[in-house]
């Protein structure tokens, strides 16, 4: 897309003026932001409740005690996140691919996948974590892991895969049927057409939606705290129960923010770039 070419020459001076105006408004925005939050901070810090508030949430001694423990719990959150995300992206794609197969031979498999997706999407994720995380280890089955951590992560994978499969499906449906016809016409089988022609285009179309899911999973891994898994939230809860101080929770929140804010920014940046690329193409 080349907008400059269509812009009349007379527009150039006004363009320059508008960029000066842009610089001035940026300065105004900066000054007013600093003034506003500065005034807000002064009011808060000088209020009567501030010392108690600070002690409750930003206590230095508790911070020093809790930091290494919460950080090591957070490391477990990150590991769960990475393992679960990889499994979700793969498993959900398999579900969506099965759902996209046509023909009577695949009917039973397709129905199974649809029933699975509907069922899982209808259950609150926390319930699934409780059911699998407490229920399955209690069975004491041989040859099956007994750790709540394992089943908690499995519950996350199952739940997120059902949603992610629907994301992939919308991508698959966005690929024009003539692409499938072309693929079949050069002799590809249905599964080859799906694998080489439909899915690569479908995945490209849903990367922004997949990134959204990633941002949300990064926080939801903390839900397995309810099983007693000693990740960051659980560690913070234990310390808080002992010290009657909420600083460990603040530490946990900051740790999650350190990851999720950059990821959200990258996701936004990518989505925007992708949108521009598409606009430029058509």
């Amino acid at each position: 897309m080349d907008l400059d070419r269509s812009r009349p020459p007379s527009a150039v001076p006004s363009l320059k003026r508008s960029s000066e105006r842009g610089a001035r408004s940026a300065i105004v925005a900066f000054v007013s932001t600093v003034a506003f939050f500065g005034a807000f901070a002064v009011v808060v810090v000088n209020s009567e409740a501030w010392p108690a508030f600070r002690n409750q949430f930003f206590n230095g001694d508790v911070f020093v005690d809790a930091w290494p423990i919460v950080v090591s719990g957070f490391w477990l959150d990150i590991q769960m996140f990475v393992v679960a995300e990889i499994a979700i992206l793969a498993f959900a794609l398999l579900l969506a691919a099965i759902r996209a197969l046509r023909g009577p031979a695949f009917f039973p498999l397709r129905m199974l996948v649809i029933a699975f997706i509907d069922l899982i999407r209808g259950i609150p994720i926390i319930l699934l974590i409780l059911l699998l995380g407490f229920g399955l280890p209690a069975l004491r089955l041989t040859g099956v892991p007994n750790s709540p951590l394992f089943w908690g992560v499995v519950a996350l994978i199952i739940s997120y895969s059902a949603y992610t499969a629907e994301v992939y499906r919308s991508g698959i449906e966005s690929v024009h049927p003539s692409q499938v016809m072309s693929a079949r016409s050069i002799g590809l089988t249905q599964t080859q057409a799906l694998r080489h022609v439909v899915i690569p285009q479908a995945v490209r179309n849903v990367v922004p939606a997949l990134l959204n899911g990633l941002v949300s999973l990064q926080k939801d891994v903390a839900l397995v705290y309810i099983l007693g898994v000693r990740e960051a939230v659980r560690e913070a809860q234990i310390i808080t129960a002992r010290s009657f101080n909420y600083t460990p929770y603040v530490i946990t929140a900051v740790l999650f923010l350190l990851i999720s804010v950059p990821v959200a920014r990258v996701a936004d940046w990518y989505t925007e770039r992708d949108r521009e690329r598409r606009a430029g193409q058509s």
Partner: peptide, 10 residues
Amino acid sequence: VFQSFNLFPH
């Protein structure tokens, strides 16, 4: 060969 080419864009 079809009217609308249908090449694989990726």
